[in-house]
Design a protein around this nucleic acid. Structure first.
Length: 196
DNA sequence: ATGCAGATTGCA
DNA sequence: GCAATCTGCATG
């Protein structure tokens, strides 16, 4: 698969083994790819949020539990959680093993498998396919079965995209604590961001 | 054992 | 504005 000449190979583990805010910013413009039994879907990451150790909004802020344990493991793995009784959200585990941090992928610009995304979402409008953390998991066919999946593998991964586009830094959405922290990042002037 | 709030979404 | 719908976690 090619993407305008961009090589599409999974980002290596050491990419994720860095400061989580840095990874959250650099993931903007990268491509999230899922080769599923139903077909391949992919989209450009246009919005992310960082969740840090010592951050009250982070699922790993307290002790380790079965749900959040993958966040404490080695970087470069998927953390998929189920919420509100009906939605899944996708994160990439970052920073060193033992540090409970991750980047939430909040929005994508659909680039491949759009018909499949439309079918999964029950929506036609391009802007309603991946403009939200639970929308994109539905469109991409990502569920709890992908929790703990190795993102350096061939099935579900992120590959390098074009960097250098202007980034907006803002506060995170949908949380009660830590709302003052500037840990949300999105591509400026992008129509596929969940909310400005 | 029981209760509650949640990194959301879609419809009234 | 609010229901949908399940799980982790705190409390008794």
């Amino acid at each position: 698969m090619s993407n305008g000449g961009t090589v599409c190979r999974p980002l290596p583990r050491q990419y994720y083994d860095r400061d989580t805010v840095t990874v959250a910013k650099e993931l903007l413009g990268c491509l999230l790819v899922h080769h599923s039994p139903e077909g391949t879907t992919a989209g450009k990451i246009v919005e992310t949020e960082a969740y840090l150790q010592g951050d009250p909004a982070c699922h790993a802020a307290r002790r380790m539990t079965p749900r959040n344990s993958v966040m404490f493991g080695p970087p470069g793995y998927a953390y998929v959680y189920f919420t509100y009784g009906m939605h899944y959200c996708f994160n990439a585990v970052t920073n060193s093993e033992g540090v409970g941090e991750a980047v939430l992928i909040r929005a994508l610009e659909p680039t491949e498998g759009i018909a499949l995304m439309q079918r999964r979402r029950g929506r036609k409008n391009m802007r309603e396919l991946c403009s939200g953390p639970a929308k994109l998991t539905q469109a991409m066919g990502i569920g709890i079965e992908h929790n703990r999946l190795d993102l350096t593998g061939a099935r579900l991964y992120i590959c390098q995209g074009e960097a250098g586009a202007p980034i907006v830094t803002a506060t995170r959405i949908g949380i009660k604590e830590g709302t003052d922290l500037p840990l949300r990042f999105y591509l400026q002037d992008c129509r596929y961001v969940s909310r400005k």
